[in-house]
C-alpha cells in the first residue's frame, strides 16, 4: 500500500477539487448553485472511489462507485425536478 509521488499529488489535487466544491456548496447563493456543487462533489467521489479500489487493490470498490454514481444521479434529477415544481 505504498504510493508514489505522482499518486500523492493526484490525491492532493482531488481533495483540492472536493474542497472547492464543498465551499460552493456552503456559499451557494441559490438552491441550483448548491445542487450543482453537490452533483460535482458526487462525481468527484465516484472517481475517488475508483481510486480507493486501486489503493486497496480490491475491485469491490468499483461496484460501490457504480452504485454510488447511479444513486447520486437519481438524487440530482429528483432535486432538480423538485426545484422546478416549486415555482409554478
Amino acid at each position: 500500500m505504498t504510493i508514489s509521488t505522482l499518486e500523492f499529488i493526484a490525491i492532493a489535487l482531488l481533495l483540492v477539487g472536493m474542497g472547492f466544491s464543498a465551499i460552493r456548496l456552503f456559499l451557494g447563493p441559490t438552491t441550483p448553485d448548491r445542487v450543482v456543487a453537490a452533483d460535482t462533489l458526487s462525481v468527484i467521489t465516484t472517481a475517488g472511489l475508483a481510486g480507493m479500489a486501486a489503493y486497496f487493490n480490491n475491485p469491490i470498490y468499483l461496484d460501490i462507485a457504480l452504485v454510488y454514481g447511479t444513486l447520486a444521479f437519481v438524487g440530482t434529477v429528483a432535486i432538480a425536478r423538485a426545484i422546478e415544481g416549486n415555482q409554478k
Binding site: 452533483d39 462525481v43 475491485p59 457504480l66 454514481g69 432538480a80 426545484i83 422546478e84 416549486n86
Partner: peptide, 28 residues
C-alpha cells in the same frame, strides 16, 4: 467494470447538467 463506469458518467453527467440548468431557468 471501469468501462461501464466511464460510459455511465459520460451519459449521465450532461443529463444532470442540463436538468439543473433547466430547473434554474424555470425558477427564474
Amino acid at each position: 467494470k471501469l468501462l461501464v463506469i466511464a460510459g455511465f458518467l459520460l451519459f449521465t453527467n450532461p443529463v444532470a447538467a442540463s436538468i439543473i440548468a433547466r430547473a434554474a431557468k424555470i425558477s427564474g
